[in-house]
Design a protein around this nucleic acid. Structure first.
Length: 601
RNA sequence: GAUUCCAUAGCUCAGCUGGAUAGAGCACAAGUUUUCUAAACUUGCGGUCAUUGGUUCGAAUCCAAUUGGGAUCACCA
């Protein structure tokens, strides 16, 4: 994060306003908040004075004017002010904005070097099952987790990206069993099918046969519930799971082989998505964790044992239910595992915060998890956070892998890239690029569009994924933003050929700023605030909206003002510097979303 | 039944800890290019912020109730 070389202007104004209230009315106010002036009015920052009428004992207009006068005299940056009803609009001098702009010019917005005392934040995301390929819901998860990690990093945290792969359990056995029965020894190599898709194919195959069996049993007069349990296939899968848990050699070999196919497939999906991890955990290695915690909990009398030997915690006093943590047969449940892995991570990584990127279906689970850990007395439990995000829905209805309306992640990405290619060609773009460069460009645009579409909405809200709309490259989209970045790069290239003009690092300030120029600089100025807020709220959407606003403002500026055609060379230089800095802000912000920008398109 | 999240323009979404006449994009209608990349820009159309009540000088925002929608509440993960 960039440290500003001078005091934050809002802070300074707030402090001076407190002084003003003290000296004018003899009242001590602790906190003053300035807000951005409504664009319909003149000014940059606004103070609402209604709250001070009690202490001033004067009319709103009078109070605002008195404070305004005080600020104008005591704060050099305040050029002027105006009062409308109870609103005090402060005009900040152009020189302030120009000085600010000069101070950041040529410097990165995001400081790559972390402070020595940077807090450690673990971000867990992705966490796939190894029985099928990634789908649309995973895409949101991955993009969110990655982006939040980047944002936290940029805001000065040491981030450890982690992924816990759910590589064991009944679902894997289903794929394994179906492959054994109907696979005829197929492999990714023999079929040319991506490993995760091949395994997924057998998961579907299992389901198909399983449903047939259930239907038959129901016909024979069994209830649906019984049929589901008694179907031979399910029994076989259960047996396979027992064998796996007993480390049966053949089962382990099959499991290892099929998982390796899946990992290879995931690897390429992750690569395409542009996400990565620092630590990958496997549930096969962690699923027994947590049992020792049960002992500790029992000893502390926080956990209780039932007559049948199962162990539970009573959370009814906290408005939740009783939660079982150990079955009567002594085996652990999902919650037990999560307790165990959390403790393990706390001990190994000493995190200050641990963020779980998991869909909001599991809100209750995490509420319980965090509560149990804090009851068990782990201090670090305060640093646990569930980054809960809403489901991705399709226009036809809710997306569930079981219901067949899955949008496959690989297919989706390819479709976006293909569409980018088609659209680019239609518009007659990128005609002078080599095939290789063109392919790269289509990827940048297609994937950018997908990522932006998913990240621009508030994570916690459910979102509607309309494939048609996501591929529309007009409006509030990544291609629009990328396009503006490209235009800036084109300007900078052309400037080199401009006769009698040299693009020097230092430039002289224009006599006065155009409205749009000032707005752009203010927008750049607010980058840090936006970044910090996005980090505090774990919301890439705030960054996305910020970039869009910036790009839109630049687009308007570009239309209103000619840059290279300007007669005064000083102004060309200034405008180029402004454009270049806007370009850097766009590029760096887009990187926080995991989105690339092309140099030309 | 309990808990929890959500409800803003025809559609998709912004609107931060309460502030001025509720904003974008899409769609629809009209316009702008001999000029730096038109994937652009401008203008118009479009709202009882689910409903009701409360707090307040002031509510889309806070509180309560109601209605509608989602999710969760297993010795599944």
């Amino acid at each position: 994060m960039l440290k500003l070389p001078f005091m934050n202007i809002e802070k300074k104004l707030s402090e001076k306003t407190i002084e003003a209230l003290q000296s004018l009315y003899g009242a001590a106010i602790e906190k003053i908040v300035f807000e951005k002036t409504n664009p319909d009015f003149e000014g940059d920052l606004t103070l609402v004075v209604f709250n001070f009428l009690k202490i001033s004992k004067k009319k709103p207009e009078e109070t605002a004017t008195e404070i305004g006068n005080f600020l104008k005299i005591n704060v050099p940056e305040v050029a002027d002010f105006n009062v409308i009803k109870g609103f005090l609009n402060i005009v900040i001098a152009d020189s302030f904005w120009l000085n600010y702009f000069k101070s950041i010019n040529g410097k990165p917005f995001i400081n790559a070097i972390l402070p020595a005392d940077a807090p450690t934040v673990m971000v867990e995301y992705s966490s796939p099952n190894t029985n099928k390929p990634l789908h649309l819901g995973h895409v949101r998860n991955n993009l969110l987790g990655y982006s939040v990690s980047e944002i936290l990093k940029a805001a000065g945290n040491k981030v450890i990206k982690t992924n816990i792969v759910n590589d064991r359990g009944i679902h894997i056995c289903k794929s394994m069993l179906a492959w054994q029965k109907w696979g005829n020894g197929e492999t990714p190599e023999s079929t040319g099918i991506k490993g995760d898709h091949l395994v997924g194919k057998y998961y579907v195959e299992f389901d198909k046969h399983y449903k047939e069996e259930i239907a038959n049993l129901v016909k024979q007069g069994k209830t649906k519930e019984d049929a589901e349990k008694q179907a031979p296939l399910m029994q076989e899968a259960q047996q396979m799971l027992f064998k796996w848990e007993a480390a049966d050699k053949d089962t382990m070999e099959l499991w290892g082989m099929m998982n390796s196919w899946v990992y290879k497939g995931f690897e390429s999906t992750y690569k395409m998505l542009g996400v990565d991890f620092d630590i990958i955990y496997y549930e096969s290695q962690t699923y027994l964790f947590g049992k020792n915690i049960i002992e500790v909990g029992l000893a502390k009398n926080i956990l209780k044992r039932r007559a049948d030997n199962s162990v539970y915690i009573d959370l009814t006093a906290d408005g939740l239910d009783e939660k079982t943590l150990l079955r009567a047969d002594g085996t652990s449940v999902y919650m037990t595992q999560d307790l165990g892995t959390a403790v393990q991570r706390a001990e190994e990584e000493h995190f200050d915060k641990l963020i779980y990127t998991v869909a909001n279906e599991q809100d209750y689970h995490f509420k319980v998890l965090f509560l149990i850990l804090s009851k068990l007395g782990y201090k670090w439990a305060e640093g646990l956070y569930h980054l809960s995000y809403g489901m991705v829905e399709l226009p036809e209805g809710k997306m569930k892998s079981r219901e067949g309306t899955v949008v496959d992640a690989d297919e989706l990405m390819q479709e976006m890239i293909d569409t980018a290619a088609v659209t680019s060609k239609e518009l007659g773009k990128a005609t002078d690029l080599s095939n290789e460069d063109a392919e790269k460009l289509y990827r940048t645009i297609g994937l950018g569009a997908l990522k932006y579409f998913m990240l621009k909405v508030d994570p916690k809200k459910k979102m509607l994924f309309n494939p048609a709309e996501s591929i529309d490259f007009n409006g509030n989209t990544a291609p629009f933003i990328q396009f503006n970045y490209v235009r800036i790069q084109a300007l900078l290239r052309k400037a080199k050929d401009l006769s009698g003009f040299e693009f020097t690092d230092s430039f002289s300030s224009p006599a006065n700023l155009l409205t749009k120029e000032k707005e752009l600089i203010i927008k750049l100025y607010s980058f840090n605030t936006t970044l910090n807020q996005a980090a505090a709220e774990y919301s890439p959407a705030l960054i996305a909206n910020y970039i869009y606003d910036l790009a839109k403002e630049f687009s308007q500026y570009y239309h209103d003002v000619s840059i290279l055609k300007e007669e005064q060379k000083d102004l060309i230089l200034f405008r180029l510097h402004l454009s270049k800095t806007v370009g850097s802000a766009i590029k760096e912000s887009m990187q926080l979303l995991g989105i690339d920008v092309p140099e030309r398109m």
